[in-house]
């Protein structure tokens, strides 16, 4: 590699095959089509963007206060304030200023926002109660199915009996819990992107079916004794 400045490692990285790090030519990138690496013959497509050629913007260290009339950074008494935090309004020097989406934040505001989700762009973790209810609904099936499959090699009647036996006791708890979860959390926000309600509905249906089997198996002997 020639004497490329250390700052500009992005263009150099673009000119290396992502598979074998062998060299690529700039006109291979210009073509923006499927190409073969001349070294390892791997099929490649590299979509490069102008940001790769943009020099890295260095953050400031904060200028020292020269005149008494200048306001100081909240955290650094000797440094000149350049901006105010959009969260708490404190004055910030270049070092303390964190820019995000055209706004200025101090580090404590950003940390608070990340923890409590007050800035939507910083919110990053979402709970999926629909999947949880699906998993709970399927739990007894997961216990019963392997037993059923293993025993069905021997005899079908034995397999059905043992499978039902495995199914019933956990279903007593799991089916109501799954039904409750899928109803109670059906309107819980799981992020601003489109999401289907199918998982919740499927969880409810599976739990309802398991519950129906449970009720049928319990009530059948009772029905028999009553009719006798």
């Amino acid at each position: 590699m020639n004497s490329a400045p250390a700052m500009a490692n992005a263009p150099a990285r673009l000119l290396a095959c992502p598979q074998c790090q062998g060299p690529l030519t700039p006109d291979m990138l210009a073509a923006d089509a499927v190409q073969r690496c001349p070294t390892c013959a791997t099929e490649l497509r590299i979509a490069a963007f102008p940001a790769a050629l943009r020099p890295c913007v260095k953050g400031g260290f904060g200028d020292l206060i020269v005149e008494d009339t200048e306001s100081a950074c909240f955290h650094h008494a000797g440094k000149r304030a350049k901006s105010a935090c959009d969260g708490c309004g404190r004055f910030l020097c270049d070092l303390c200023d964190i820019r995000m989406q055209g706004r200025h934040y101090c580090s404590s505001c950003l940390e608070h926002a990340a923890r409590f989700g007050s800035i939507p762009e910083l919110e990053s973790a979402y709970s999926r109660f629909d999947l949880l209810s699906l998993a709970v609904a399927c739990l007894p099936l997961m216990l019963a199915l392997p037993v059923f499959l293993a025993l069905s090699f021997i005899a079908l009647e034995v397999a059905v009996g043992a499978g039902l036996g495995m199914l019933l006791f956990p279903a007593l708890f799991s089916a109501p819990i799954a039904m409750y979860l899928s109803i109670a959390y059906r309107k819980r926000s799981t992020g601003p992107w489109p999401r289907s309600k199918a998982t919740s509905i499927v969880a409810f249906i599976i739990a309802a079916c398991v519950l129906a089997i449970l009720v049928a198996v319990i009530s059948f002997p009772i029905y028999l004794t009553l009719t006798r």
């Binding site: 992005a10 990285r13 673009l14 095959c17 992502p18 598979q19 791997t42 099929e43 490649l44 497509r45 590299i46 979509a47 490069a48 963007f49 940001a51 790769a52 762009e121 919110e123 990053s124 973790a125 979402y126 709970s127 999926r128 109660f129 999947l131 949880l132 998993a135 799981t190 992020g191 992107w193």
Partner: peptide, 28 residues
């Protein structure tokens, strides 16, 4: 660009702003 990853019952979102993306490479 939002990259949504799910592990167990928690989803984690990563945001990559279009202005920051330098390259996307695809290799077979």
């Amino acid at each position: 660009l939002l990259v949504l990853r799910r592990r167990l019952f928690t989803e984690t979102a990563h945001r990559f702003y279009y202005a920051d993306i330098q390259a996307i490479t695809v290799r077979r």
